[in-house]
Design a protein around this nucleic acid. Structure first.
Lengths: 227, 227
DNA sequence: TGACACATACCAACCGGTCGGTATGTAATA
DNA sequence: TATTACATACCGACCGGTTGGTATGTGTCA
């Protein structure tokens, strides 16, 4: 029952554009509904296999609305990458590990957190950017660049903590914070592919644990076993 | 003129089935030409975006030939996964690092080798399986299973060396050879995604170097810096 | 009243797959 | 050896449904 209520809140069809200011239902535009739909459907079926009609159906809008807000399917993909980037930035910024004061704790907390959120359906925890760039890197430069920008943005945020931790605990190490941050993203993206191949998150979780152990190794932490 | 001659040799229509035993031209069937085409085109455009006509054109055969050898596009994808698996198995089995006698040397040689072959066009060094499973894990169970089987086959080969190295140099370690082998594949697959996003292999190379450093760490090797 | 945010109706190109047919090879029979 | 019978490999025109995209209508709000 709570589930149904939650869904209805912003899903169902007709009386969509009600109430501008007052109290409830801040109104969700067709544009945002389509972006939400893209985030869900593309992660499930892939970009090329997702049709404009699929997205309209999922969003509960018509094709007219789609092409009113987006020039093309490719245009929507670019917008979805930015939308996803904003969403995940907010998501990780408000995650519990951000409260930790030590940058190395925060980094390890980030890695733990990424492992912990591997729950539920695969299309709900995998990454939109990795999915899209894998398909479109060659055929659509715009999508490729949008995905690159969003991945790099997230990596840069991780790199900040890495750089701070390095200055504190391993100032003379030869590796760079930038590259290590990208390596964390490599492990995440690779984990998603393994999760898809094996239809479950187990191998992905184990891989992220390996990543954690590696980071601890780089910072000369003792082999702390705490799953 | 040589170009035309070369193309004619195995492409053009009529006198296809010549010479059974004698000297030259062992004859390449339409089936194999289509599998080769799939390996190339799917890695470039993705599975869903690759049309049957694309593959026929690339292979220089007609649609009739396609559906004579394969029941469907999905059927070809499954066959291509096995074809790819056979090809890569042979490829890695005959790689130079296999000559090394120490299993840990062989493992590190494998990782170096995987980094070294990140050359040329992206679609020529990325993995068909990762590309296909990313798109089809949910929509095509057959393709998903075929990709899983081929990835697992390769991982199992890597796991053999890891297990042997572990017995020799780290018999009491808590990690399993199986999981570490899967982790190497996670790093490879993730590296390909980063290479696609950044349109170049640099970040991928750096990540595979991190993987090597991690393996050295697990085996208590000193930080050997030798790019 | 005009700009905006949609909905409806529609199209041409394209896609996976089918189908009738041909060319060539092969094995049995006479 | 010639004939028949059948199998394999392949061709390419064709089909119906789908796809991204367009043209046009309509209600709402400033």
């Amino acid at each position: 029952m709570p589930a149904k209520a939650t869904t209805r809140t912003r899903a169902a069809g007709k009386p969509s554009g009600r109430r501008t200011g007052q109290g409830a239902l801040p109104k969700i535009s067709a544009r945002e509904k389509l972006l939400d739909a893209a985030v869900h459907v593309v992660r499930q079926k892939g970009y090329a296999a997702t049709t404009v009609d699929d997205l309209c159906k999922e969003a509960g809008v018509t094709k007219g609305a789609f092409f009113h807000h987006f020039e093309s399917k490719e245009d929507l993909a670019v917008a979805a990458a930015a939308y996803w980037s904003d969403f995940t930035t907010e998501f990780f910024n408000s995650a519990p590990y951000q409260q930790l004061t030590d940058p190395l704790d925060r980094l390890l907390g980030y890695i733990d957190f990424r492992r912990e959120i591997l729950r539920g359906k695969i299309e709900d925890f995998t990454c939109l950017l990795g999915t899209m760039v894998q398909e479109a890197y060659e055929t659509s430069p715009k999508i490729r660049k949008a995905c690159d920008a969003s991945i790099s943005r997230h990596a840069a945020a991780v790199a900040e903590d890495i750089a701070a931790a390095k200055q504190l605990y391993a100032p003379d190490a030869t590796w760079s914070a930038q590259e290590l941050a990208l390596f964390t993203q490599v492990v995440m993206q690779g984990s998603f592919i393994l999760a898809k191949a094996k239809h479950g998150p187990k191998a992905a979780e184990a891989s992220i644990l390996h990543l954690k152990r590696y980071v601890e190794c780089l910072f000369n932490k003792k082999q702390g076993d705490e799953p």
